[in-house]
């Protein structure tokens, strides 16, 4: 069992508040759908949970199984059972995918995997994800299509078996067959008790992963929580009904521009003879 608690989390990027007091809990076996308009802080929340260095926590706290997450480095968070499936996975030149996968799997083990154990696990996971084995011998994500990168993220999810997985628009760039595979993979891990926090703009992914709860983020706050009916509503009517029925302002707070002068514009006077 694992439990992630986020309490009144405030996060800044470049001095600007992006998250403004997020509180949310996720338990093993739960799947939470996180929805919200573009640019309202959903990806920031996932990045902050994983400890991305560009996010500064200014208030609040996060705990994983009661242990303060903010004192853990990113790799410690991962080794303690968190996984972030990224929206735009980095291309890391020269680092061979299989070397990376093996190193990542070994971080969770006391004794390194024997070669045959690793290839057995890899063979099974690549077959499940219908990834050609050749792809795992290429440099990590380098030259991969958008869909291949996302499949590679799910491949890692399968091999690393986290306690809680955060999936950031994992469905973007995927064709229908690949989307079904993601759905099947998530379903199989749900049965093993893995918890999920899933960001997507599309009901078709949520149809496959059957969320137990839904949270809607507006302007860096969880504005609404409820059941899967919210997804259908947003899919049908967008977000405007939140304003009408719940009085939730959908606009982001406008930060005034810095009025500092950047200098004086020099103009050349036209002279006429």
């Amino acid at each position: 069992m694992a439990r992630l608690d986020i309490n009144n989390l405030w996060v800044q990027v470049d001095g600007l508040d992006i998250l403004k007091g997020v509180s949310l809990s996720i338990n093993s076996g739960e799947t939470i759908a996180l929805l919200g308009p573009n640019g309202h802080g959903k990806s920031t929340l996932l990045g902050a949970i994983m400890g991305h260095p560009k996010y500064t926590i200014t208030q609040g706290n996060m705990t994983l199984d009661g242990v303060d997450l903010l004192t853990m480095s990113t790799d410690e968070r991962a080794r303690n059972g968190l996984f972030l499936g990224m929206q735009n996975p980095s291309e890391v030149p020269g680092v061979i995918n299989s070397d990376f996968l093996k190193a990542a799997m070994n971080t969770r083990r006391e004794k390194p995997l024997a070669m045959f154990q690793f290839y057995k696990a890899l063979d099974g996971a690549t077959k499940t994800m219908k990834i050609p084995l050749e792809m795992v011998h290429r440099p990590l994500n380098e030259g991969f299509s958008g869909g291949e990168k996302k499949r590679n993220e799910i491949l890692q999810l399968l091999l690393l078996e986290p306690k809680l997985a955060l999936l950031d628009e994992i469905d973007s760039g995927l064709d229908i067959d690949a989307l079904a595979m993601v759905g099947n993979t998530v379903a199989s891990l749900q049965k093993k008790g893995v918890g999920f926090l899933v960001i997507s703009h599309y009901a078709r992914l949520y149809d496959l992963v059957t969320p137990t709860r839904v949270a809607v983020m507006i302007d860096g706050r969880i504005a609404l929580e409820g059941d899967a009916g919210i997804i259908q509503r947003i899919d049908k009517s967008g977000y405007e009904w939140l304003r009408i029925e719940h009085g939730i302002a959908l606009e982001k707070e406008v930060v005034p521009m810095n009025m500092t002068s950047i200098g004086v514009c020099a103009t050349k006077e036209k002279t006429t003879k």
């Binding site: 260095p53 080794r79 980095s90 890391v92 030149p93 020269g94 690393l160």
Partner: peptide, 29 residues
């Protein structure tokens, strides 16, 4: 590249392991 480092660390590799893998990958070709 901080994004590269974060990506590898987000899979559980320590900073030293991540740097080692990136260096090896940089010179290996």
């Amino acid at each position: 590249n901080e994004e590269h480092l974060f990506y590898l660390q987000s899979r559980g590799l320590s900073e030293d392991e991540a740097r080692r893998l990136i260096t090896y990958g940089y010179l290996r070709p």
